[in-house]
Design a protein around this nucleic acid. Structure first.
Lengths: 104, 104
DNA sequence: CGCAAATATGTCAAATTTGACATATTTCCT
DNA sequence: AGGAAATATGTCAAATTTGACATATTTGCG
């Protein structure tokens, strides 16, 4: 299994869990995946708190339900940009994002 | 002046300073720009701490000097992804990034 | 000053990310 | 169970971001 494949899987939660860890990934790749995971968790949490469906959030940010699903799954094709923009659209502040990053 | 133009200028520091504020930008656009500004400051700080030139950092992250310059200037064509990846390449942790975001 | 190293700016083809769409799967009611 | 709403997954053309390059400007040092 090559490194790219492994990263894609890792981002989808298949390889790495809290038990089986990010085996063989470089530290900066790990950090990048972890960051995206935290943001995607925060996104889902905020969306649910507001009682929005993925489709409703998609409309809010002028995207699509499928892309929102991918964001929340931390799909490898989703950028950090899109994640943070979506969080801001859900009224998160920069501080909220910093907080989300430090949360276990 | 349209909103896009204003945002580009704002990201380059022309419109918004600590004195003249982010006039007319939507809250989420402001937050996004602020986030990128914090990351670009942290990038420059870390690079200087390590005594690296922009060209040296560029080599480290397999990019180019000009793109590093744009990152540190928080150019509108630079993504948050590239910024955080570069920070990770300079041994920043997710916590370091969270910390940078909360710093004035 | 003079000049070399560093940084900044503009441009563009190639690479990546995007919204949209179709469709599959899961969740949660009655 | 069964069906409707929500979520997930795969694909792709269009849009955005990228590294690379040329070149301009700034910085710092003799």
């Amino acid at each position: 299994m090559d490194a790219e494949k492994k990263k894609r899987l890792a981002e989808k939660g298949w390889v790495s869990t809290s038990i089986q860890d990010f085996l063989g990934l470089a530290p900066d790749e790990m950090a990048y995946i972890e960051l995206k995971l935290q943001l995607s968790r925060e996104l889902r949490a905020r969306r649910n708190e507001k009682g929005l469906t993925q489709a409703a959030l998609a409309e809010l940010i002028k995207s699509s339900q499928s892309r929102v699903a991918k964001m929340e799954k931390s799909d490898a094709t989703v950028s950090v940009d899109l994640l943070v923009r979506s969080l801001f659209a859900l009224d998160a502040t920069v501080e909220d994002i910093a907080q989300a990053l430090t949360t276990a």
